[in-house]
Design a protein around this nucleic acid. Structure first.
Length: 871
RNA sequence: GCCGGGAUGGCGGAAUUGGUAGACGCAGCGGACUCAAAAUCCGCCGCCGCGAGGUGUGGGGGUUCGAGUCCCCCUCCCGGCACCA
């Protein structure tokens, strides 16, 4: 009879037991090896999505596996609770962001618990709690003292209707996403963190992270963007209307190709450069051009294909080595935000300069030659820009020098004239943390008319964010909150006003992992416990954080280290970036030319006779829809699957098993309803099989097994051995396969029912349950105790493969002839090479391949195959 | 353009160091049970071929007794970065 699989009762009972036992409470214990397993904490957006389920299941499998292996495991959870969505929800629903956030947290916490995660909830935190963000403020003040935090004026996107700053991604085609108003560029003062001070260390220490994916490290290295070259100045005597020398008479440029300096035929400056602004005053045509450049599209794809355009300023500057006059152009390909906003142009050896010079008929002067290549002005050639093979020509005293020697000599000469030196340039910018937003951590500064910007004294921390504000969409409500605004100056005691900007929410997430690891003291940011648990042994999260969050956290750790708060250089020893969850996308063109999307449950796939999917039709009208392939689950494409529905229908174990089984953690996961059903079917079979076994207590294995019993036991132990290897390399899909294989072996053993099968089954099933328990913890706990293996599978020992079970008396060897499979034979384990060789050559199934040819040699791969080479 | 990662049946994906390609599952097909259906169980399942056999891991070449795996060239796909001077 078919056994029911009552997953609701099973899961509820197991979760209740863990809660009663305080099973996942983690305490520092120096006598045990520790394992700090951390998944990126969620933003409390309302409810869990599949990405969360995947993320947290991966972490939970690792946590539970290490726990059973004897590690002292910490797996905490919390909430990245500040941020814009709470404000937007508040504007829409007239609910204070705090209430919206805490309601979401309560709901999502319930959902997380229903997944059966092995989390130490006693360490739960939310970044919107004053006890937490107090330490953002405290560390910010320490950074101010050290000069790591400083104030400067920045250009931002300003929405004139909402009276607020917009993030870049909130500006669509130059207009505010909400108001549709044309966005203005405004210079606004804000606080910056001097992350560039750590640029070199952030780059170098990537080498200390062998447990990080290569691509993440590459992305960070690119982002940091170290570039070694020479910064030098062209001199000039250009004065503004007041007769003041512009930029002290120096046009600074940065170049990585100082060796080509004698090939300079013009300079190009960005549209925003002071020289361009100056020249535009007396040149309306130029002014118009500059305006056009500034408004130009900033879409990367457009930039790549954009035509190089420029205009002569009519100004000229003096070449620092030759004394020659060099014209200054405005070029749309020069960026104000990188280097000096100006470049020396060497058309002969820079492809962009070459194109520019050709277009505007500027001179091109060769200054590098490569043996065997001849220079022609007709078209750009690959070797013109090659710095590894060329030597200087037409370059006076530098002629004959290679790249490095020439750069050294030229840098030295420029330095002697006081006009330049070698310099390292970084792409990385300092981190602007001021947000003109309400729902975030207040920046602890007081503005006093007498004393200026005064830091809030430590004993007045935290500066609490008032939680009863309801933003109305027009600017930061803190600006209208008198209770918050009004204060007294800590220095002179006169009435003063608080800073109303809040911190970027990336600050909140830059150190939460260290707080989890600490006791939650109100006196200290982190304590000794942090030293025990940190660094995080395994961090798991989405690739979308490859740069921002992970770079900020590395920076923040180094600052905390330099303040003697922690003793690690890097916070995350190993990083796993899980793949996204994809689902089918179905759509149809509407009459009006738009696209209408259909949820997967609204359509039916159409197969051909081979079972190949050839299309789909809408259930509602039976007419075909377009299958757009797989894509990330999203509201707009209507292809999301609600984890809650999955858990309700099949249970958490099924959800977890399917997530692990469907694909390896780092790869994208393709959603499949029938795959979920398959996973559920497997767990039902496990449950049913368990109930065919008698209690485990009475069955001891005999000393020696033979025949199908030995065979079944060998299969199970061999599968276990492979599964452990896969667990260690975090390839969980094949671990799930291994559990399925074990059940197949056990069912076959039982069907053949040779005498004495029960002890083999009892042992085999105990291995299956333990192997499966990190993935499906509820059903395995239920069966473990029901069958009498023990009370608590969490405390069971991790199974070890019995090597003696793997040994076979007789081995099946494959016979190849010239590498092609021709047969197989059984040999005794003790058979020596010559015996195997003669048995293989004499084997009946290969005789026809040996006719008329000579056996040249025989290759034997132990336990695998025999290859007979003939010719 | 540069950097990184890929390409294996109808599908998701296996295959530690080069050693039986397609594990495990999904879909499909056939059968049993059933009045019937669902569920369940049994069997088949890369392609060509009745069969023997041939062929097969994006394409081409190479190394090797033996290549999905190593080397060279090419095509395509995904991700990241980018007038970075």
């Amino acid at each position: 009879m078919q056994q029911q699989y009552p997953f609701r009762e099973i899961e509820q009972a197991a979760q209740q037991k863990w809660e009663n036992d305080n099973a996942f409470r983690a305490e520092a214990d120096p006598s045990k090896p520790k394992y700090y397993c951390l998944s990126m904490f969620p933003y409390p957006s309302g409810k869990l999505h599949m990405g969360h389920v995947r993320n947290y299941t991966i972490g939970d499998v690792l946590a539970r596996y290490h726990r059973m292996k004897g590690y002292n495991v910490l797996q905490p959870m919390g909430w990245d609770a500040f941020g814009l969505p709470a404000e937007n929800a508040a504007i829409q629903n007239r609910v204070p962001p705090a209430k919206w956030t805490w309601d979401n947290i309560a709901y999502m916490k319930k959902q997380l618990k229903s997944l059966g995660l092995a989390i130490d909830w006693s360490r739960e935190l939310a970044t919107c709690q004053p006890e937490y963000y107090k330490w953002n403020q405290w560390l910010f003040l320490r950074m101010l003292e050290k000069g790591i935090a400083y104030k400067k004026t920045q250009i931002v996107n300003w929405d004139p209707v909402d009276q607020t700053v917009l993030a870049n991604e909130q500006v669509i085609d130059g207009r505010g996403w909400r108001t549709g108003a044309l966005v203005e560029k405004r210079e606004i003062p804000g606080y910056y963190l001097n992350i560039t001070r750590y640029a070199q260390e952030l780059l170098d220490d990537l080498d200390k992270l062998p447990g990080w994916p290569e691509r993440v490290k590459t992305m960070q290295a690119n982002w940091i963007g170290k570039s070694t070259g020479v910064r030098f100045a062209f001199t000039h005597d250009i004065r503004d209307a007041d007769g003041k020398l512009i930029d002290d008479g120096k046009l600074w440029v940065f170049t990585t190709r100082a060796d080509t300096i004698m090939g300079v035929t013009f300079c190009a400056v960005a549209a925003e450069h002071p020289l361009a602004t100056h020249a535009a005053r007396s040149n309306p045509e130029l002014a118009a051009f500059i305006e056009k450049c500034k408004q130009g599209s900033v879409m990367e794809a457009d930039l790549a294909t954009m035509e190089k355009e420029g205009m002569d300023t009519g100004l000229s500057v003096t070449h620092p080595l030759t004394g020659e006059q060099v014209p200054v152009w405005v070029g749309n390909y020069v960026l104000m935000s990188y280097g000096e906003g100006a470049v020396m142009a060497v058309p002969a050896h820079d492809e962009r300069d070459f194109a520019f010079a050709k277009k505007y008929n500027l001179p091109i002067r060769q200054s590098i030659a490569v043996k065997g290549e001849s220079f022609s002005l007709d078209a750009w050639q690959e070797w013109y820009g090659d710095k590894s093979h060329g030597v200087c020509v037409n370059s006076g005293k530098y002629d004959g020098l290679g790249h490095e020697a020439a750069v050294d000599a030229i840098a030295a000469d420029l330095k002697a004239k006081g006009l330049g030196d070698k310099q390292v340039n970084w792409r990385l910018r300092d981190w602007g943390i001021s947000r003109q937003r309400y729902w975030g951590c207040p920046i602890p500064i007081i503005h006093c008319d007498n004393c200026g910007d005064v830091p809030v004294p430590d004993n007045q921390l935290p500066v609490k964010l008032p939680e009863d504000c309801v933003p109305d969409g027009s600017g930061n409500p803190l600006n209208k909150c008198e209770d918050f605004l009004n204060c007294t100056c800590p220095k002179c005691g006169v009435p003063a006003r608080r800073e109303t900007d809040t911190m970027d929410t990336f600050v909140d997430s830059s150190w939460y992992y260290a707080r989890y690891a600490s006791g939650f003291s109100n006196e200290r940011m982190v304590d000794e416990q942090t030293g025990y648990w940190m660094p995080v042994d395994q961090y798991i999260g989405g690739i979308e954080h490859a740069i921002l969050h992970l770079l900020y956290s590395r920076f923040w750790s180094k600052v905390m280290r330099d303040l003697d708060l922690v003793d690690y250089d890097e916070p995350f020893a190993n990083l796993l970036t899980q793949g996204m969850v994809l689902n089918h996308i179905f759509s149809r063109r509407t009459d009006k030319g738009g696209i209408e999307y259909f949820a997967p449950e609204e359509v039916e796939l159409v197969h051909d006779e081979n079972g190949k999917v050839v299309g789909a039709k809408l259930l509602a009208d039976g007419k075909p829809v377009d299958f757009q392939g797989m894509g990330t689950m999203s509201k707009s494409k209507r292809n999301g699957v609600d984890p809650q529905a999955l858990i309700d229908q099949y249970g958490a174990d099924t959800a977890r098993f399917f997530m692990m089984f469907a694909s390896p953690p780092e790869q994208t996961l393709e959603w499949s309803d029938s795959g979920v059903e398959g996973s559920h079917r497997f767990l039902r079979r496990v449950w049913a099989y368990g109930h065919t076994l008698e209690s485990a207590i009475s069955h001891a294995l005999p000393a020696k097994l033979t025949g199908s019993l030995a065979n079944a036991r060998r299969e199970i132990h061999a599968t276990l051995k492979q599964a452990v290897y896969d667990l260690e390399r975090k390839q969980f899909n094949t671990v799930a396969s291994a559990a399925m294989k074990m059940l197949n072996s056990l069912e076959k053993l039982q069907k053949d029912a040779e005498d004495g099968w029960q002890p083999v089954a009892t042992e085999g099933f105990s291995i299956l349950l333990r192997l499966l328990s990190p993935i499906a913890p509820h059903i395995t706990q239920a069966l473990w105790s029901e069958l009498g293996y023990g009370d608590d599978i969490l405390r069971a020992e991790w199974p070890q493969p019995d090597e003696s079970a793997l040994v076979q008396d007789e081995i099946e060897l494959v016979i190849q002839v010239n590498g092609k499979l021709r047969g197989s034979m059984t040999v005794a384990r003790s058979a020596d090479k010559s015996a195997i060789e003669s048995q293989a050559v004499a084997h009946s199934s290969i005789q026809k391949y040996l006719e008329g040819v000579t056996v040249r040699k025989v290759i034997i791969v132990p336990n695998k195959l025999v290859n007979i080479v003939v010719g």
